[in-house]
Computed example of a mutant assay.
Amino acid sequence: MARPLIADIDLDALRHNYRLARDLAPHSQALAVLKADAYGHGAVACAHALLDLAPAFAVACIEEAEVLRRAGIDKPIVLLEGIFEATELERVDALGLWVTVHSHWQVDALLSFRPQRPIPTWVKVDSGMHRLGFPVVQLSAVWQRLSAASERVGDLHLMSHFATADTLDDAYFRRQLALLDELAATLGAPTCLANSPATLAWPQAHGAWNRPGVMLYGSDPLQGANDASRRLEPVMTLRSEIIAVRDVEAGEPVGYGGRWTAPRRSRIGVVAAGYGDGYDRHAADGTPVLVDGRRTAIAGKVSMDMLTVDLTDLPDADIGSQVTLWGQGPGEERLSVDEVARHCDTISYTLLTGVLPRVPRRYHGGAS
C-alpha cells in the first residue's frame, strides 16, 4: 500500500476562481499567475485547465516560461521579474514572451536587441512597495525611450504592485493608487496594477489587465473577508490517514521535546505527513485538522514524516481514518489553508508553495 499522503488538485475549483477574478473586473483582462509552479499546484496542469479561459499567463522567470512552452502552452506569458541578464532576450524572442522592465540596464538591453518581432513590454514603477520598479520621477523618460523604439518594443503597459491592498487600513493603498492614476493619465498608459487583494476588494484599481495569483488557488488574501473572497473554492486538499493510535495517560508528553502534555487520558492519532513533505514544522498545538470530516487539532511538534493529533473526542476515529490537513474534507466540511497558516504564524502562500515533490499531486476536473 502506498503512503497515504496526497495533494488533491481540483481543477474545476481553479476554473471557478479564475472566472470569479474575471467577473469581478469585466472591463479588464486577467493574467493567470502561475509562478512557483502555480503556487505549488503544478503549473503545467493548471495552465492546461485555464487555456480556454485565460488570455495570458504570468511567471517569475524565463525558466518557468520554458516549462510551459515545452508543455504546449502557446498563450502569451509575462515575465514578472523580467530578464536577469541581457542574453536572455534571445530566448524571450524565440519563445514569444512578454517582458517586464524595472531597471535601466534592462531597458538598455532591450533597446540594443533586434527581435524578430517587437516584444510587448510592461514597465514597472515603484509606487511605494520599494522592491522593484523605476522611481516615479524617472518613469516619463523611460516610457518615452521605449515608445520611440516601436521596431523593438511592442505594446507598453504601466505596472506596479500594492503593498497594503490586503489590509483593513487603506490609507497607504489609496496613496499608491492616486499616484498611479495620475501617472497613467499623464502617460496615457494602460495599466496592470491589481493583484489578488485588489482584484477582490478594489475595483478602482482594475486596469487593462489584472494579475490574480493566490486567489486562483482558493486562498483569501484579505485581512477581512468580503463577499467576493468568500466565494473562493479551495484547489488543493492535502490529505492523509491515521496510521497508528496511542492511548496516553494524563500528564504524559507527546512528540519531540514533550511540548504537548495530555491534560487527561487521551487518544493520539499518528498521521502520515510531516515537515519532510512540506507541512510547516511551526504548526502550534491546536492547529486544526479534520479527521473523517470532524475538527480536531495537532498535539505535539510536527516531525519529518509524521504529526500527531488528538482523537480523544473522536471515539470512532482509528487507523485508516481520513485526515484533511487543509482543503475540502468529506461532505461539505472545509478547512481553510488560511486558518492553518495563522496557527503556523505564516501565510497560505508558504504552505501551498512548500508542499514538496515527494507528495503526489492527483488532478481531477478541469474540462472546458
Rank of each mutant, 00 (worst) to 15 (best):
R117Q: 04
D181Q: 15
S321H: 09
P330C: 09
G293K: 11
T164Y: 12
D310Y: 08
S240H: 13
R91G: 03
S266P: 09
M304V: 04
R69H: 11
G213W: 04
D10Y: 08
S150L: 03
T353S: 07
A25H: 08
A367E: 08
G154F: 07
L110W: 13
L24W: 07
K35W: 09
L5H: 13
D108Y: 02
D10F: 14
A36I: 13
A56W: 00
D338P: 12
I347H: 10
D170H: 03
T87W: 02
A38V: 02
R358K: 04
H27D: 15
A198R: 11
W143N: 06
G365N: 08
A58E: 09
D23N: 15
G258V: 10
S240E: 14
T261S: 02
E241P: 01
A262E: 07
S348C: 05
A13Y: 03
D8S: 08
M304Q: 15
G72I: 00
L177N: 04
A228P: 05
L14T: 12
L216S: 08
M215D: 07
D292H: 03
A273M: 15
R19E: 15
G255A: 07
D285M: 00
P4Q: 01
R22V: 13
A341H: 02
E63C: 04
R362F: 09
G366M: 03
R22P: 12
E85A: 14
G327W: 05
L34I: 05
L307R: 00
T121H: 14
V289I: 12
S150C: 10
Q106T: 08
R19I: 07
A225N: 05
T100Q: 13
W209T: 08
R358Y: 01
A228I: 10
K124N: 03
D227K: 09
W260S: 04
A43F: 01
L177W: 06
F57C: 02
A149M: 08
L311M: 05
E81S: 15
Y18C: 06
L335Y: 07
P115M: 10
V137I: 14
A201C: 11
Y275P: 12
P253W: 02
S28M: 01
S103I: 09
I268K: 03
R267P: 04
V235L: 10
H161D: 14
M304F: 11
L307E: 01
R70N: 03
D23Y: 12
R152N: 07
V136F: 04
R265M: 00
L110T: 14
G329V: 13
A86K: 14
M304A: 05
L238C: 00
G154V: 07
I298L: 06
D126H: 02
A32F: 08
L24D: 10
V44T: 14
I83F: 06
A13I: 00
S127N: 05
A45K: 00
V137L: 05
G251P: 12
E88T: 06
I73G: 00
R114V: 12
G300I: 04
A165H: 12
A58H: 10
L232W: 01
G40I: 08
S336A: 14
R246V: 14
A273Y: 15
A2P: 02
V67Q: 12
L51W: 00
T350M: 11
L193H: 10
E332R: 01
L80F: 15
A47Y: 02
P76T: 10
S140R: 13
